[in-house]
Write a protein that binds this DNA or RNA. Structure first.
Length: 227
DNA sequence: TAGGCCATCTGGTCCT
DNA sequence: AGGACCAGATGGCCTA
């Protein structure tokens, strides 16, 4: 395990980490050498069905009022020989789909295309989320998996909320003109999440440095030890 | 080779 | 009726 993996593993709260490792194992965190973002093959290989649809039912794609109809084609790799779902195989080899009336088949393909666009939009949103999460975006680092992206985003939001609350309390404290050396009252955790906020005001000084948007600050948010 | 992750297809359900 | 959303199934790619 390299340093990057360790850092990311530290980012997950204990309960979340336990849950993740139980459900998905450590690979749920999306690390592994050699897996590079934007690796060959792309995320959206061209399926023969999609190819068919782009030529046959492009009109229905536009009818959805979404802006992604062109994007879909851009993502596809016509050279990718990968085959997709069983239904397509059935279709290709004269399966159930090909036995359906032409109208039904057309409708099914249209529905498939819509679903594909929907999932692409969802993935675009996830990419947007990844882009604002402070983790290593280096090409040599594997892209965060979907589940890891969501969990890190949750941690990041909680961390930011807590940092904001700490800052507010500090400002309020300073405005009162009290001595900085007197103990700062135990902060009330925002959003009723006291159990997941290990920080106290006394830890603010050391934590503040690490709230600079670096991955480490996010990674350690929910560790037992503050910062 | 097993397991993780992912894209796609599909049928069902709900909503407008 | 048509579209959005969802979950299950399936199969490919990649890594340990």
């Amino acid at each position: 395990m390299n340093a990057g993996e360790e850092n990311l593993l530290k980012s997950i709260s204990n309960d979340t980490l336990l849950d993740l490792t139980q459900r998905y194992g450590q690979s749920a965190f999306g690390f592994g050498p050699g897996h590079i973002t934007g690796s060959p093959g792309g995320r959206y290989p061209l399926t023969p069905a999609a190819d068919f649809l782009s030529g046959q039912t492009g009109k229905s794609n536009e009818s959805g009022g979404e802006q992604t109809s062109d994007d879909d084609d851009d993502r596809f790799d016509p050279l990718d020989p990968r085959k997709r779902g069983s239904a397509f195989d059935d279709d290709k080899h004269g399966g159930p789909l090909s036995k359906k009336p032409k109208e039904q088949r057309s409708l099914r393909l249209s529905i498939n295309a819509r679903e594909r666009r929907r999932m692409h939009d969802l993935n675009d949103a996830l990419d947007g989320l990844r882009s604002v999460i402070p983790y290593a975006h280096s090409p040599s680092v594997r892209k965060l998996s979907k589940i890891a992206t969501l969990l890190l985003a949750k941690n990041y939001i909680l961390m930011q909320a807590q940092a904001l609350e700490e800052m507010r309390r500090l400002v309020a404290y300073l405005n009162q003109g009290q001595s900085i050396t007197s103990p700062i009252p135990t902060p009330i955790a925002p959003f009723g999440q006291a159990a997941v906020y290990p920080f106290t005001g006394s830890a603010l000084a050391t934590c503040a440095e690490k709230y600079s948007g670096t991955p480490a600050s996010l990674f350690k948010q929910h560790n037992d030890k503050p910062c």
